[in-house]
């Protein structure tokens, strides 16, 4: 009996280890990438160049596109503009979602659409304009719904409005080939659907156990 009592701590520890092990594979936190395979949230946002025109999900129906969250205040976004512009020249559809920097809105300084338009067009003239059009998310509602954690971030959306990929950080020569393959697969008709699912599964590995 006395011999056995010294094994109690070991037994308790091994019991705990079993739970720790199984806990590893059930992630308690849902990540932003949980949006992948979900439909694009509903939105209705003003077009940057023509604010009276509201862009909605209907405007993008049937299109495969990249939704790029950016702002002129974000250094990495500015550096990304050049590369995105070369993508547009290759025929990639890129929609801009302009991230309005909160302090302007929240701290008394009125949000000024005209000033923003001037700043953006100056910046795009300088660095290149990759966008079909830009939407201004003044209240950051769509940005919230998308679970954006910073800028730049890019979402790949398919023709039926389903988000296929969520990329945090800039698009560059390193990560573009993989995203490009996925983009091409979405453009192609039905048979490619399986390979897309495979890519998704790969992207999700390590995220959550769906």
């Amino acid at each position: 009996m006395r011999k056995l009592q010294f094994f109690i701590p070991l037994a308790l520890f091994l019991g705990l280890a079993v739970f720790l092990f199984s806990g590893l594979f059930s992630n308690p936190r849902d990540h932003g990438s949980a949006l992948v395979t979900q439909p694009m949230p509903q939105f209705s946002l003003p077009n940057l160049t023509e604010p009276s025109r509201l862009m909605t999900n209907a405007d993008l129906k049937g299109k495969v596109y990249l939704l790029n969250v950016w702002g002129t205040w974000c250094a990495t976004c500015n550096a990304e503009l050049g590369f995105l512009t070369t993508l547009r020249q290759q025929g990639i559809e890129i929609i801009g979602l302009y991230y309005v920097q909160p302090p302007e809105a929240a701290f008394g300084e009125r949000f000024d659409m005209t000033a923003l338009q001037q700043e953006v067009s100056r910046k795009l003239a300088e660095q290149g304009d990759p966008y079909q059009f830009n939407m201004v998310d003044e209240k950051r509602s769509l940005i919230f719904d998308l679970g954006v954690t910073g800028a730049p971030e890019t979402f790949l959306v398919d023709a039926s409005g389903i988000i296929r990929h969520h990329l945090v950080g800039d698009i560059n020569e390193q990560n573009w080939p993989a995203l490009h393959t996925q983009y091409q697969a979405l453009l192609a008709p039905a048979p490619a659907a399986n390979s897309t699912a495979a890519t998704d599964a790969k992207n999700n590995a390590g995220g959550q156990g769906e």
Binding site: A75, T76, G150, G169, E173, Q174
Partner: peptide, 9 residues
Amino acid sequence: LPFFPVDGR
């Protein structure tokens, strides 16, 4: 490398 960001997060 070789694609490093202009500024950090």
